[in-house]
Design a binder for these strands. Structure first.
Length: 144
DNA sequence: GCCAACGTTGGC
DNA sequence: GCCAACGTTGGC
């Protein structure tokens, strides 16, 4: 049981764009960072993750799930880079902003705050549940 | 294997 | 648009 956070600049690939891909989801390609790749390698089918808008928005706006295990990143010319596929599960009714995360003691240790440049991050179950609660999700979708 | 230089990310 | 943080590269 694991939870994650996927960061994206909305003007490059937004939450709405992920939703538009529907059930099939989207290859989370373009990641060229070993820590982020290793996080994706550790993901299992059905793992849930936050979709976070960086640069503009600065908030957790949705919940996605892993729908394909790590495989070769089709945009990479070398076999080094792998990625998972994710698909949208539901909106976060009240997006949880970075500012709020920073000012919530129970969330102050989140990777989002401590390792702000990591594009694919682990999230603890406690953090996941707390962010869902603050975001107005009555029944957060859980990882298997 | 160290470390300086450099490039990129991302918040402000 | 600036700048701090940090990952990567490359010379030694």
């Amino acid at each position: 049981m694991a939870y994650w956070l996927f960061k994206s600049e909305p003007f490059k690939f937004s939450w709405d764009m992920l939703k538009a891909t529907g059930e099939a989801g989207q290859e989370w390609d373009g990641v060229r960072n070993y820590a982020a790749r290793n996080n994706m390698r550790a993901m299992k089918i059905g793992d849930k993750g936050f979709f976070y808008h960086s640069n503009e928005g600065l908030a957790v706006v949705g919940i996605a799930e892993v729908c394909a295990l790590a495989h070769h990143d089709s945009t990479a010319e070398v076999p080094t880079w792998e990625c998972v596929d994710i698909r949208a599960i539901c909106d976060v009714p009240r997006p949880v902003t970075l500012d709020v995360v920073k000012n919530t003691p129970s969330l102050a240790e989140m990777a989002l705050v401590k390792f702000s440049r990591l594009s694919v991050q682990p999230v603890t179950e406690a953090e996941y549940l707390e962010v869902c609660k603050m975001g107005g999700l009555e029944k957060p979708p859980l990882s298997p």
